[in-house]
Simulated scan of single mutants.
Amino acid sequence: MMQVKFKNNPVKISGKELNVGDNAPVVELVGKDLSIVKIGGAQGKYQIINVVPSLDTGVCATQTRKFNQKAAALCNANVYVISLDLPFAQGRFCSTEGIENLSTLSDFRKKEFGQNYGVLLESGPLEGLLTRAVFVIDPNGKIVYKEICAEITNEPDYDAPLKAIL
C-alpha cells in the first residue's frame, strides 16, 4: 500500500489496492436523492472518480469545483465526486456551489467503495473517511489513471486524469 500522510503524519489506508490496468470493481453508492448508483465496470463511457474526505473542507470543495468546471467540456465521460458525507449535505453543497456537471455519491452505508478501491482511512484524525484520490475508468471498465494523493491536504493533478481520456 502506498504511504499517505495527513499534515505530514503517516496514516494507514485499507482496502484492496488497485492499479492502472486492473478491472474497476462495480460498487453501489448513494446519490443525493438517496437512489442507488453503480459505478465501476464497463459503462460505455469514461468514468472520472474524484474521491475526497469531506466536501465540508476547503481543499475538497476546491477539488470538486475544479473538476466540475473541467467536466463541462467532456461529452464522453461521467464525472463523480465520492465522499462519506451524507447525501443531503452533498446536495446542499452542490446547490450552494452551483455544481451541475458532476454527480455526488456517498459511500456512507457500506464503505464498499473505500474497501474495493483501497482508499479507506484506517488511522489518523480522519480515520473512517476516504483519502483524497482520483481514478479514471475507460469505457470497457479498466482503470487507465490512478492518483492517491501522498499528502491528504494537497490537491490532486487536474490535467493528468483528463489527458487519460483524450
Rank of each mutant, 00 (worst) to 15 (best):
M1T: 05
Q3R: 08
K5T: 14
F6M: 08
F6K: 04
P10K: 02
V11M: 03
V11C: 03
K16N: 14
K16Q: 15
L18R: 15
N19Y: 07
D22M: 02
N23K: 10
A24N: 05
V27R: 01
E28H: 07
G31I: 01
D33M: 10
S35F: 07
V37T: 15
G41H: 09
A42N: 05
A42Q: 08
G44I: 04
K45L: 11
Y46N: 09
Y46M: 08
I49Y: 01
V52T: 05
P53A: 03
G58P: 05
G58R: 13
C60W: 00
A61K: 12
A61S: 15
T62N: 06
Q63Y: 02
Q63R: 07
F67T: 10
Q69M: 14
A71C: 09
A73D: 14
A73M: 06
L74Q: 08
L74R: 01
L74M: 08
N76E: 12
V79T: 15
Y80K: 09
V81G: 10
V81W: 00
S83T: 08
L84H: 12
L86K: 14
P87Q: 13
F93S: 03
C94H: 06
S95G: 12
S95R: 12
E97V: 09
I99S: 03
I99Y: 04
E100R: 13
L105H: 11
F108D: 09
K110Y: 10
E112K: 05
E112R: 02
F113G: 01
Q115V: 14
L120K: 01
E122N: 09
S123D: 02
G124D: 07
G124W: 06
E127M: 14
G128T: 04
L129M: 14
L130E: 05
L130V: 10
V134Y: 08
V136A: 03
V136E: 02
K142F: 06
K142I: 05
Y145C: 11
A150N: 11
I152P: 00
N154Y: 07
D157L: 04
A160E: 15
L162K: 01
K163S: 15
K163R: 15
K163C: 12
I165N: 01
